[in-house]
Design a protein around this nucleic acid. Structure first.
Lengths: 218, 218
DNA sequence: TTTACTACTATTGTATACAATTATATGTTA
DNA sequence: TAACATATAATTGTATACAATAGTAGTAAA
């Protein structure tokens, strides 16, 4: 558990991961006492965690009855890629208008680090910079709501991808991701919203396909 | 308070409204005890409500320090209209693909009721059907996440509009809204995604302008 | 057997009690 | 006075206790 954070937050994070990784059956009942025993905590923080899970739509709480897991279907995951795509486009547009020079430099730095680690063969650190690159664009959009939602989408799609024993992103894929990031970076540096929207759209559509959710409705 | 629901949910709803209506200063500290005294409840449900407010980005909780109100700036509200617009478009697209005949009829029914109440001069009931019309489209998109987010956006923008002593939507505005809804309904009935996206976009841009957030960045 | 009622158990909802941390006030020293 | 240290109070974090509701088993009557 992350030290310093309240138990409620730590329990929320753990349970969210369990649900997203499919470790709990759809419709399964979560009794508070069971979670208390598992983590050796009292019901107070567990209840707070449950409320957060409900707000995220991962469990359904029925008053006086209990909390039930609400799983994700493949279609839901495919949909989430589309929802993320629209907001990534929005974040890019606002970043073009609102980012500071310093923020642009941070983004460029994240790109270069990802390039470095990719060519070095360190796919874990390259992945970290991949995530970081996107998060810096969210930050540069200067909108907290959008940033919060996109951050959670990124986390969700990351867990889905790692789910089901699917291998980590392939070497060749990483080169493709890198190429797409370079196009996004160029568009930002040129403050070229038109091109940027096109490449961000392409990037997210590719990532949906890479994750195996291509053939659903697009 | 809504009977049947847990106190935590009722307190969350009340505090959310207080914050969105601007009844609390930006940065103001919310002590748990104060809320307990105000609503005559114990700290347990208050803390659960605080967690929900934090998740929505309406307060910031600093461990061992307390909860502080995070207000909305005009720019944030303008942004939210843009975020809502993109998801309304997505909901429309998915509704065109996924709605049942029964759902289409419910939507048509809501439109006709709004038309009836508007011409009868009952703007309150007309407003209710306005909201209902949109919510039925969310439902017809068959995506719970999207539905949940759009429902909350609708609530947010509604409170912002009612804020600051601004008059209820004008008579002439209601006619305009009605006209736009009829175009959305027609597009749904024809399952014409291309036209529908255009009219939904127009509808949301108009509503942003009607609410007074037109001149921010669009 | 089926239904309805009762008693009991399990679980959730809420309040309170205790622990840990932070803020405030007081006093001391340079 | 200003800076620091210490004691005290206030507030949050967590655990437990009590209340209310829902589920279950068992029994009796039809």
């Amino acid at each position: 558990m992350m030290a310093g954070l309240p138990l409620a937050i730590n329990i929320f994070i753990k349970l969210r991961e369990d649900i997203l990784r499919g470790r709990m059956k759809n419709g399964e009942k979560l009794t508070e006492q069971r979670i208390c025993n598992e983590y050796n905590v009292s019901r107070t923080p567990v209840r707070e965690a449950f409320r957060l899970l409900e707000q995220e739509g991962l469990i359904e709480m029925i008053p006086n009855r209990g909390a039930f897991v609400t799983g994700f279907l493949p279609q839901d995951i495919a949909d989430m890629y589309d929802m993320r795509k629209e907001y990534e486009i929005l974040a890019f547009k606002w970043a073009v208008e609102r980012m500071t020079q310093e923020e642009l430099e941070e983004i460029r730095n994240a790109y270069e680090l990802m390039e470095f680690y990719t060519h070095k063969g360190d796919s874990v650190k390259a992945q970290d910079q991949n995530v970081h690159f996107h998060e810096l664009i969210y930050k540069a959009s200067h909108n907290k709501q959008l940033t919060r939602i996109l951050t959670s989408y990124q986390y969700y799609t990351k867990l889905f991808k790692e789910d089901g024993d699917i291998e980590m992103t392939e070497e060749e894929d990483m080169e493709e991701v890198l190429k797409e990031h370079s196009e996004i970076l160029e568009s930002l540096e040129d403050r070229d919203a038109k091109r940027g929207v096109a490449v961000v759209r392409k990037h997210l559509e590719s990532s949906k396909i890479r994750a195996g959710y291509g053939g659903f409705d697009d």
